[in-house]
Each structure stands twice: as C-alpha cells, then as structure tokens.
C-alpha cells in the first residue's frame, strides 16, 4: 500500500505529473488554490498507486514524496 505525499504549497500546477502516471490517479485539485495561487496536483485514490514514482521523477519542483507500507 502506497502513500503519495504532495508538498501542496510547493506545487506550481505544471501538470507534468498527471501526464506520466500509469494509473491515471494523479489529478489537479480544481477545488482549491495553493499559497502560490496554483491548483495543486494530488492523488485521491491512494490505494491504486503502484509505487512506480513516475510522478515524483518528473516533478520539476521535487514536491512529491512517496512512502510504502511494509508487508
């Protein structure tokens, strides 16, 4: 089971992460703006995350941290 953690206020809403997620679960939060005034990226369906880290690898602002529950 994975946890995809966004430093929301660091996100600049560039959306690159949404283009590489093989499970299509990285989406932009249209309902809110972050401190910089961008719509931040987020993962709602955390349970579908396979831990490939693609979103984190392409994030130009390194705002995504990914954790994996052991066992």
């Amino acid at each position: 089971m994975m946890r995809v953690i966004f430093d929301e206020d660091g996100c600049k809403g560039c959306e690159l992460c949404t283009t590489v997620c093989p499970k299509k679960i990285v989406v932009m939060a249209k309902d809110r703006l972050n401190a910089k005034g961008f719509h931040p990226a987020q993962v709602i369906e955390q349970d579908k995350c396979i831990g490939c880290r693609f979103c984190a690898m392409i994030c130009p602002d390194v705002v995504i941290k990914i954790k994996k529950r052991k066992g």
Partner: peptide
C-alpha cells in the same frame, strides 16, 4: 512506512524560482 522517494540530501530544501514545468528542477 518506508520512504521510496524523497528530496535528495544534496539538494537544498528551498523552493526553486524556475517557471512551472521548467526542466531545470
């Protein structure tokens, strides 16, 4: 929970000034 991706240590923990989507980051 085991961390499988995080900011590297050699990268200062400060926001970049680059434009959104700029690949410098």
């Amino acid at each position: 929970m085991e961390t499988i991706f995080e900011r590297p240590k050699a990268l200062a923990d400060v926001p970049f000034h680059y434009c959104p989507g700029c690949t410098h980051g």
